[in-house]
Computed example of a mutant assay.
Amino acid sequence: MLRFPGHGPLRPDDVVIGPLDLAAHVDEALEVQAKAFGLGPDEVAVRRQIVLRHMTLPGARAFGATVGGRLVGFVYGMPNDRAHWWSTVVEPHLRARGRDDWLDGSFVITELHVHPRYQKHGIGRSLITTITDGADEPRSILSAIDVESPARGLYRSLGYEDLARRVHFPSAPKPYAVMGAPLPLRRAPDGRDRPDRKDR
Rank of each mutant, 00 (worst) to 15 (best):
Q49V: 12
R47W: 07
E43L: 15
L52V: 05
H54E: 13
V46C: 05
Q49P: 00
A45H: 13
P41E: 15
V16F: 13
L30V: 03
P41F: 08
A23C: 02
L22Y: 11
D27A: 13
L30D: 03
H54C: 05
Q49N: 13
R53Q: 09
A24K: 00
A34H: 02
L20G: 02
Q33V: 07
V51E: 05
R47D: 03
V46H: 11
K35Q: 15
V15L: 02
A36K: 00
V16Q: 13
Q33Y: 08
M55S: 05
P19W: 13
V26K: 02
P12F: 01
R47P: 04
K35P: 01
P19A: 15
L20Q: 03
V26T: 11
V51F: 04
D13A: 12
P19L: 13
A29V: 08
F37L: 13
G18A: 04
F37G: 01
D42V: 05
I50N: 01
V15T: 01
L30W: 05
F37K: 09
V46G: 05
L39H: 12
K35N: 11
V51Y: 08
V15F: 11
V32E: 05
R48G: 00
G18R: 14
L39P: 04
I17A: 01
A23L: 04
H25Y: 09
A34P: 04
V32P: 00
K35H: 15
D14K: 12
V46Y: 15
L39I: 09
L30P: 08
V26D: 01
Q49C: 08
A24D: 14
L52C: 05
D42Q: 10
V26S: 08
D14A: 11
D14Q: 10
R53V: 03
D14H: 15
G40Q: 03
M55P: 02
G38T: 06
F37T: 02
E28K: 00
V26W: 04
A23I: 00
V32I: 09
V44C: 11
V15Q: 05
V44E: 15
L52A: 06
L22D: 08
R48A: 02
A23Y: 07
D27R: 11
V51K: 02
L30K: 08
T56C: 03
D27T: 14
L20H: 04
K35E: 15
H54T: 04
D14P: 02
G38P: 01
A24I: 04
R53D: 12
D13P: 04
K35W: 12
D13I: 08
V32L: 06
G38D: 04
